[in-house]
C-alpha cells in the first residue's frame, strides 16, 4: 500500500472531527473522497501531510515518506513564473546553497520541472507568471509542482472547487491519468458526478467515519443522499 491510514482520530476543542478513519490507496489507484462540509475530509488529508497533528492513529506513506499536496486555493506564488513554482517542489531535496533563489536552481532541476509542466500540458506557459494563468492552468501548475516533489502519493484537497466545470473536468482527468502512471492519488471532491466518472474507488465520510468505500459502479443515489443529509446528532458531544 502506498498510502495507509488506520484509526485516525482528531478533535478540535473537544469536537470530534475524525472518529477512527481507515483509508488505503494503492499505487495506480485514484480514490475520490466525498462528504458534507465538516465531515473531516480535509482534516484527514492535512493530518497526512503534517498540517494538522492527529490525536491517534497510524499513517504511513510509501516512497519518500512524504505525500504531495494540492490545495483548493492553489497556493502558487503569483509573481514567480510557472517554471519557478514547479522547481519549488524540489526544495526539500536541494542543498541550501542552490535553493536560495530561482537563479541558483541547477539546470537538471529546471529540465525536470519542464518535464513536469509538459506532463500537465503547460510546457508552453513555463515562462509566464503563475498569477497570469487561468484558475485551471494554475491548478495544473500546482500539480506539476507536486510531481516535481517526486512523491509517490498525491493528495488533493478540493482541487476543483474554485474552477469552472470544464477546467474541473480537465484537472480531475489529469489526476486520474497520474494514478494510471503509477501514483497513489486521493482527492477530496464536492462533485459526486466527477467522482463517479473518474475515480477507481469512492470513499464517503460522514461524522468523522467512513460511511462507504466502494467502486463507482456500485454506488447508489441513496448512498449519496444519505451522505449529504443533515446530520442528526446521536451521541453527546464530547
Amino acid at each position: 500500500m502506498s498510502l495507509h491510514i488506520r484509526g485516525l482520530r482528531k478533535a478540535f476543542d473537544g469536537r470530534t472531527v475524525l472518529d477512527g478513519v481507515d483509508l488505503e490507496v494503492a499505487p495506480g489507484e485514484f480514490v475520490a473522497v466525498l462528504g458534507a462540509n465538516g465531515s473531516g475530509k480535509s482534516t484527514a488529508l492535512r493530518c497526512v501531510v503534517g498540517l494538522d497533528r492527529p490525536d491517534a492513529g497510524e499513517i504511513s506513506v510509501g516512497g519518500t515518506g512524504r505525500a504531495a499536496m494540492v490545495f483548493q486555493r492553489i497556493h502558487l506564488v503569483g509573481r514567480r513564473t510557472a517554471l519557478d513554482n514547479v522547481c519549488a517542489g524540489a526544495l526539500g531535496r536541494l542543498p541550501l546553497g542552490r535553493s536560495l533563489s530561482p537563479l541558483l536552481f541547477p539546470r537538471t532541476l529546471r529540465e525536470e520541472a519542464m518535464a513536469c509542466l509538459d506532463r500537465v500540458g503547460l510546457a508552453d506557459r513555463a515562462a509566464e507568471r503563475a498569477g497570469r494563468l487561468s484558475g485551471g492552468q494554475q491548478q495544473r501548475v500546482a500539480i506539476a509542482r507536486a510531481l516535481c516533489q517526486q512523491a509517490t502519493v498525491v493528495l488533493a484537497d478540493e482541487p476543483v472547487s474554485a474552477l469552472d466545470p470544464s477546467a474541473a473536468e480537465q484537472v480531475v482527468a489529469l489526476l486520474k491519468d497520474l494514478a494510471a502512471d503509477g501514483l497513489a492519488v486521493a482527492a477530496v471532491l464536492h462533485q459526486p458526478d466527477l467522482a463517479r466518472r473518474h475515480a477507481d474507488r469512492v470513499v464517503g465520510l460522514a461524522g468523522g467515519r467512513v460511511a462507504f468505500d466502494a467502486a463507482p459502479a456500485t454506488l447508489t443515489d441513496a448512498d449519496l443522499t444519505a451522505l449529504y443529509a443533515p446530520m442528526t446528532i446521536t451521541e453527546p458531544v464530547r
Binding site: 498540517l51 490545495f71 509573481r79 514567480r80 526544495l91 541550501l96 535553493s99 509542482r145
Partner: peptide, 27 residues
C-alpha cells in the same frame, strides 16, 4: 502575508529559510 504558499512549501519539505526565500518574500 497569505499563509497558503508558506503551508504549500512547508508540506513539500522546504526548510524555514527556503520558505522565506520562495514563499514569504516573493509574496
Amino acid at each position: 502575508s497569505d499563509p497558503g504558499p508558506r503551508d504549500a512549501l512547508r508540506v513539500l519539505g522546504a526548510s524555514r529559510v527556503q520558505t522565506v526565500a520562495h514563499a514569504v518574500l516573493p509574496t
